[in-house]
Amino acid sequence: MTDRSRRMLVAAPLLMAAAPGQTAFDFRLEALEGGPLALADFRGRALLVVNTASFCGFTPQYEGLQALHDRFAARGFSVIGVPSNDFRQESADAAKIREFCETVYGITFPMAGLTTVRGPHAHPLFTWLAARAGGPPRWNFHKYLVARDGLAVRAFSTSTGPAHPELVQAVEAALGTAAAG
């Protein structure tokens, strides 16, 4: 592989993230268990995409995220957990992440594999989200609420917990924008 082709591969995610007309549903993550986690499978649903970590002071937010997912799932809402070690508070072992999430917090919402969420190697989804909603995550448990159309994005900081009235109202508003998909 030449230096030029290596540079093209590194630049490709940035070019992909800037495609006109692109929606959140055009991206794929790797699932925590392996294989694709295609956001196209969630088309028409409102999504809360959250970068997570198992060993963070904000890790107890998992409980609230699961409650939010359970409360609104039937109305067309999904939480998507995206474990990241960008802040050095996550295991590199997918099985350990899954075991922790299931045994400690009973997580049933979809979880991506370990993903870079900021910086030059950020996953294209997070580059796209950051461009639409005030920048990249500043810490673990940063939340991006994606509307049913896959275009409108609103960010919520780490300190805005899943049960915070502003976040809950935003989820309710996002769900009121169209019929469940």
Results as ranks from 00 to 15, higher is better:
92 A>K: 07
4 R>A: 15
67 A>K: 11
145 L>E: 13
166 E>G: 00
103 T>H: 01
85 N>Q: 12
38 A>Y: 03
89 Q>N: 13
162 P>Y: 09
99 E>Y: 02
124 P>R: 02
104 V>S: 00
39 L>R: 10
161 G>L: 08
9 L>T: 15
164 H>T: 02
177 T>A: 14
41 D>G: 15
96 K>Q: 08
85 N>T: 07
58 F>P: 03
47 L>P: 13
87 F>Q: 11
83 P>R: 06
119 G>C: 05
162 P>V: 08
148 R>E: 07
135 G>H: 12
88 R>Q: 14
140 N>H: 09
97 I>F: 00
132 R>M: 10
118 R>G: 02
104 V>L: 05
26 D>H: 03
131 A>S: 15
20 P>R: 00
66 Q>N: 03
40 A>C: 01
44 G>L: 10
110 P>Q: 03
119 G>F: 07
73 A>F: 10
28 R>T: 13
26 D>F: 02
129 L>M: 14
154 R>E: 14
44 G>N: 05
120 P>H: 10
63 E>W: 03
74 A>G: 15
152 A>G: 11
107 I>H: 01
9 L>W: 09
104 V>D: 02
38 A>N: 02
61 Q>Y: 12
109 F>W: 02
136 P>N: 11
138 R>M: 08
125 L>A: 04
48 L>A: 06
16 M>P: 03
25 F>K: 06
146 V>A: 04
171 V>I: 12
82 V>F: 02
160 T>H: 06
109 F>M: 01
149 D>H: 07
15 L>M: 06
162 P>F: 05
54 S>H: 07
42 F>L: 13
88 R>F: 13
8 M>R: 14
76 G>T: 09
181 G>C: 13
177 T>G: 13
91 S>M: 05
95 A>F: 01
97 I>T: 03
26 D>I: 06
4 R>D: 13
101 C>A: 07
173 A>C: 01
128 W>V: 07
70 D>V: 02
145 L>T: 10
144 Y>N: 08
94 A>H: 15
13 P>S: 04
33 E>H: 09
45 R>W: 15
113 G>S: 14
104 V>T: 03
103 T>P: 00
98 R>T: 04
166 E>Y: 08
80 I>K: 05
176 G>I: 09
121 H>R: 14
170 A>Y: 07
158 T>E: 00
90 E>M: 00
26 D>K: 05
24 A>Q: 07
135 G>P: 11
106 G>Q: 01
124 P>H: 05
84 S>I: 08
139 W>K: 01
27 F>G: 04
60 P>M: 09
176 G>E: 06
94 A>E: 13
2 T>I: 11
44 G>I: 14
12 A>F: 09
87 F>P: 01
102 E>W: 04
153 V>G: 08
132 R>D: 05
45 R>C: 13
80 I>Q: 04
86 D>I: 09
34 G>F: 00
36 P>Y: 10
117 V>M: 14
56 C>S: 10
104 V>W: 06
146 V>M: 06
91 S>K: 00
150 G>C: 11
152 A>T: 15
150 G>M: 10
118 R>P: 08
87 F>C: 07
173 A>S: 04
125 L>V: 07
126 F>W: 11
147 A>R: 08
97 I>N: 00
